[in-house]
């Protein structure tokens, strides 16, 4: 399985002057952003700032009113689905086993049974799920379900992984474990990724760059870069703590204002 492990470095994503409104409500305003190859870009912002909408647009699940989203470069060899999501609520088919859920993403590609089984076995091994291949989603904990969803995303060897609050439905301990898993996966085979979250600790832990969106209409307030390598980040490090504090200061007023807004204005 050697060649597949090289991961997805070769494509970047460019957003140009993206704007969007639902009905009369402007949700995104003039977003220009580049997702560089082999890096994790976190997008943080108060609830309702349009960060999930932005992510859905990046993967072509929603169309922006104005602006464009460009894929630059070609996806890596063996890539079956260049822009691949990991969803907050896992989106696993409850009637399929772990194996079946991963195979779902491969079945529409003419791979042949052996190749497909080899890919499934490989991603199960990489996510530590080999012993659960036959289990149904209802038998798994939230953390395991999200591991299955990550395995499914890895199976199609994506050029860009789009993670939509992947850890938000999990408890704090599981979240820590999965963050370690994600860091491990990235270190072994760096992938390009956009990671949407409202959790600043996750962003500081996983992001090479952190984009802070303002509340509705979502616009880029600031882009914070973190130079420390992912695998060496220690949350007790005062530099990281200062970054997180800075992010919180950026977000606090926005979050307070967003919290006080009527949901359906």
């Amino acid at each position: 399985m050697g060649p597949r492990q090289t991961g997805g470095i070769s494509m970047e994503l460019r957003l140009k002057n993206l704007s969007h409104a639902y009905g009369g409500t402007e949700v995104l305003r003039d977003i220009t952003l580049t997702i560089p190859e082999g890096r994790i870009v976190c997008i943080v912002g108060p609830s309702g700032c349009g960060k999930s909408t932005l992510l859905r647009m990046m993967g072509g699940l929603e169309q922006p009113d104005a602006g464009e989203i460009l894929q630059v470069g070609s996806p890596p060899e063996g890539c079956l689905n260049p822009l691949t999501y990991v969803f907050q609520d896992f989106a696993l088919l409850p009637w399929r086993s772990v194996e079946g859920n991963i195979a779902l993403a491969l079945e529409d590609h003419r791979l042949g049974r052996q190749k497909r089984q080899a890919i499934v076995a490989d991603v199960l091994a990489r996510t530590g799920l080999s012993d659960f291949a036959g289990a149904l989603p209802r038998q798994l904990s939230g953390g395991m379900k999200q591991r299955v969803a990550i395995a499914r995303a890895l199976a199609v060897n994506p050029a860009v992984m789009l993670l939509d609050e992947p850890l938000s439905a999990l408890d704090a301990q599981t979240r820590e474990l999965l963050m370690d898993d994600l860091i491990g996966l990235w270190t072994r085979a760096p992938f390009t990724s956009v990671y949407v979250t409202h959790n600043l600790a996750e962003a500081v832990r996983l992001g090479h760059a952190i984009v802070v969106l303002s509340r509705r209409p979502g616009a880029i307030r600031e882009m914070v870069e973190i130079a420390a390598p992912l695998e060496a980040r220690d949350m007790a490090d005062p530099v990281l703590a200062a970054k997180q504090q800075h992010l919180w200061e950026l977000m606090r007023d926005e979050a307070r204002a967003a919290d006080a807004e009527l949901a359906d204005a």
Partner: peptide
């Protein structure tokens, strides 16, 4: 609907989505 959205995001064909997601669901 999130399952259907998931199917679309993995580039499943329309017929695959109907057969593997809509009908069993």
């Amino acid at each position: 609907r999130t399952l259907i959205r998931m199917g679309q995001s993995f580039g499943l064909t329309w017929w695959s989505i109907v057969r593997k997601i809509v009908l069993p669901g």
